[in-house]
Design a protein around this nucleic acid. Structure first.
Lengths: 201, 201
DNA sequence: AGCTGTCAATACGCTTGCGTATGGATAACT
DNA sequence: AGTTATCCATACGCAAGCGTATTGACAGCT
């Protein structure tokens, strides 16, 4: 068969204004969530943001929660795994933890979404996602702490403590406007945290 | 003067149904906030809860935010000082911190309100209260850490770390339903936290 | 007994947000 | 070129929530 159909993709011209896909809505929802929280993800305001009306939305999704759910699925799939993949190669558990902490203290984008979800953890669609993500992350931390030489129970507790410190710092810096630190102080704090929570080699 | 007026207070009979004062509204608002968050403090639903209509509310308060503000003022006045007063007598800084952590890990009531306020930290009335309270508490912690022998900078960092751990644990246990611990594990965790964050005597 | 101040009920208007119904427009296929 | 599938606009109904206006009920004082 001379398969002409699959030769050149249509190239939809992307002239700034095109019809939307479900994915466009999901990405826009995540963006809005990061900036203004889950509550701000309203179909009519989102539609305005995208230059359409809600007639469009209800073609792609049956109701608001379906959008939230799809957006969160997307976030959950890409987010955690991305981060962990970047430290997987480090053999020494202590070094891996240190690097993980340092990396985490940077890229704010993902954390804004996490913080927004935390605020909306009573939402029935959000709750299970947060449960899964938080537990996975703490379990991972616990494993590495154990690899770094701690006994099982201590590693579990230390993982919880470290993760609490992460969540707490997130709240303090993102929620409380006045608690924002200069980058020097912030780096020094991260250093202190690492020294306090990660066993010396 | 034979001061009859101040002799016996009227004793308003409190037969379950009485007219309401502003204070009644404030206490009810705090209660609702603790249970269902700041967003749930709506005048009409609160009124239903109190067995009146909003005609009553708008006599006592000019608008919703005035109630929030009054309720928070009440909370701020009583809350922090209550806790600190109970450990003030302990001379040894390390012991004082340990006792403070242990006490804090109990009385959930006040923490539910703190968590609810954290979720609503973008609210213009809530934000300054949270800023004040959080800073006061961290400053207090920093002072005590310094008294316990740490240098100024380390004490600041450690205070932030400890407070982050507090806030984070609050989120994990109150927001994430599945992260709730049995009381034995919880106590063990608090012990681990104390050992990790408070310098040995 | 009557007046006045205090607290509350009712009715209304306004806004935001969800979801439905229906018709119009455009791209894609045949 | 015509048909079909896709995507979107418009108009509507409904509920929750804020705030206003008006009237009513009752207590305390004179």
């Amino acid at each position: 068969m001379t398969n002409v159909m699959t030769s050149v993709p249509p190239v939809p011209e992307r002239t700034e204004k095109q019809r939307l896909s479900a994915q466009d809505w999901e990405l826009a929802a995540l963006e809005l969530m990061a900036e203004e929280g889950v509550a701000a993800v309203a179909v009519e305001s989102l539609a305005r943001r995208l230059g359409v009306t809600k007639g469009s939305f209800y073609w792609h999704f049956s109701h608001r929660d379906a959008l939230i759910e799809a957006a969160l699925r997307r976030w959950e799939d890409t987010d955690t795994h991305n981060l962990l993949a970047r430290v997987e190669s480090i053999e020494n558990p202590g070094k891996r933890l240190r690097e993980l902490f340092r990396l985490t203290s940077r890229e704010m984008r993902s954390h804004k979404i996490y913080a927004a979800l935390l605020k909306a953890a009573d939402h029935p669609v959000v709750a299970p996602v947060m449960d899964r993500v938080s537990h996975e992350r703490m379990a991972y931390l616990a494993r590495v702490f154990q690899q770094a030489g701690m006994d099982h129970e201590s590693a579990e507790h230390r993982a919880r403590l470290a993760y609490s410190a992460y969540v707490g710092l997130l709240q303090l810096t993102l929620q409380l406007r006045s608690s924002r630190l200069s980058s020097e102080v912030f780096d020094a704090y991260v250093g202190h945290m690492i020294d306090t929570l990660i066993p010396a080699e």
